[in-house]
Amino acid sequence: MLEKRLFRKPKNELEHQENGRQNQPSVPDDLYLSCPECKQTMLKSDMEDNGFVCPKCDYHFKIVARQRIALLTDPNSFHEIDAELSPSNLLNFPGYDEKLVKAQQESGELEGVICGTAAIGGYPVALFVMDPGFILGSMGTIVGEKITRLFEYAAAHQLPVIGYTVSGGARMQEGILSLMQMAKTSGAVKLHSDAGLLYVTVLTNPTTGGVTASFGMEGDIILAEPKALVAFAGPRVIEQTIRQKLPSGFQRAEFLLEKGFVDAIVHRNEQKQYLTTLLKLHQKGAM
């Protein structure tokens, strides 16, 4: 303790002035931001107007589910399904109630996935979009239930499913029941698939664990956003297991493309057009 004090820089009266500059021009904190990839500073509104993509380096920022739906679907075409389903603390897991309330307040959503029907480029689809902010996009029983219902609905109404994933994996506060959602959703995907219907997944940063190992990797066509981390076990878990540093770019979308696990990487601002073409090519009969 004593040594520390010895080396402390003496306080400079002038430095205190910094805090007192009240009448200096200033900008609100959230007007500008810097890109985590290229470190460039930009107007937040410029980034948002560019589909939440860095205008300088194409870094894809996190985007909440509602905004993604607005960007992707035709105006006023989205109709939400099962919006009222809300999670509960099934196992009385300590701290989970508080965590849920906080996530709901911060996101304004009841759960971490939004489901509904919409039109993309004029083609009707069933759509689910996971939310990165809701307990890290984890899959609990209600996430599993909503996605299962969507596939069942789509199968009954002969609709293709477009699914956007972002997830830290199964939600451990719901224990084995969240694990079971992997099987449940996979069953629903199979039901939909056996009806001869199209399912397209778009893997976004990050998609890991139980979501990768279930409906994330079960699409007929699997797309990914540039540089999205897509993994079963996340990089930290692997580094702890094998006790060595992972090569750069490991488990990124480009790596998965090279290894044969995604069909294509599609820039966020080109996804609507890409999906429109995809849907068009899956219409029954001659074009």
Binding site: S186, A213, S214, M217, E218, I238, K259, F261
Partner: peptide, 24 residues
């Protein structure tokens, strides 16, 4: 399931997902 480089390269998530779907 094993957490390692080879397992990830060869699609651990995809392999598990396919089993879930097909076993159903």
């Amino acid at each position: 399931a094993y957490c390692g480089i080879g397992a990830e390269e060869r699609g651990q998530g995809q392999a598990i997902a396919e089993n879930l779907m097909e076993m159903m």
